[in-house]
Design a protein around this nucleic acid. Structure first.
Lengths: 144, 144
DNA sequence: CAGTGATAATCAGCTTAACTGATAATCAGC
DNA sequence: GCTGATTATCAGTTAAGCTGATTATCACTG
């Protein structure tokens, strides 16, 4: 979606949140493209890298995404050789999903890329304003 | 999409922007529901209420949405009796879209509802923080 | 004033990201 | 060993947006 003419819209909170997100998502996607993943895949990789190995449904819950969406995400991560399913020995209904060595490597690089993309995206703001933005978003996004 | 467990995610800008937007969109949709419109329709109504009458494509540009999306939006607004198409006398390719009396009435009420929904959504923030948030979002969303 | 190219609205169809609901395998408790 | 819950999966649906083609109209050029 392209950007609107400036007019009455900049006053609308919904518009601002939506377009700030769209802009960041685009910047982030561009930055991650050389690594062959997108922002959603990075988020899944990061969650799967938790100290404790997670089943698909546990990982989905941590990410706030649907169980069926997680199936598709793991499908693509597996196809890219970044993660692997294996049946849990204790509960054979569960798939434990773990990063491959390659997946860990990509995650490491991708986190650097993400941090840098966030820094660049926030660069137009004075640093105290950027901090306040993050704090406010945390309040609003996380059961605020 | 439901919310995630708090964990490493709150640090991620993309996650915060996305979920802040989702939360507000939901609150806004609920608040507007009694008026029979959603946030996108309200935005279109507001743009169409501009002093100068607009063609579909002009309105679409101001909103930053696609021309074909605007066709569908005007379809539903017309079906709800909130707006009307008429051929422009000067350029018969263009549809001038104008609010009906009912559309203006709904717009007036809906703007009050929106302002109130924004106020309530931002209520968890100290007021200086809310102001900074809006300023920062404006910078980031509008060609920042 | 006929012909050519651009522009406005529309339509059909595609894409993406999410969802719901159903199914098969497995587990836990009685 | 049954019965009911839970896991992953699949099929199909929804929503918002897009692209590309079509039709009508306009503006310009010769």
């Amino acid at each position: 979606m392209s950007d609107a003419d400036p007019g009455l819209l900049p006053a609308r909170l919904g518009y601002l949140l939506k377009h700030a997100h769209l802009r960041f998502a685009e910047a982030s996607a561009q930055a991650l493209a050389p690594l062959g993943i997108d922002g959603r895949e990075l988020a899944v990789l990061a969650v799967l890298a938790a100290d404790v190995p997670l089943s698909q449904q546990e990982a989905a819950k941590r990410l706030g995404i649907d169980r069926t969406t997680m199936v598709a995400m793991v499908d693509v991560l597996e196809a890219k050789g970044l993660a692997e399913r294996r049946r849990s020995p204790e509960d054979r209904r569960k798939n434990i999903v773990q990063l491959t060595a390659h997946g860990q490597e990509v995650l490491r690089k991708a986190e650097d890329v993400r941090v840098d993309a966030e820094r660049r995206f926030l660069a137009p703001l004075p640093s105290d304003e950027a901090e306040t933005l993050l704090r406010a978003l945390r309040t609003l996004a996380i059961s605020g």
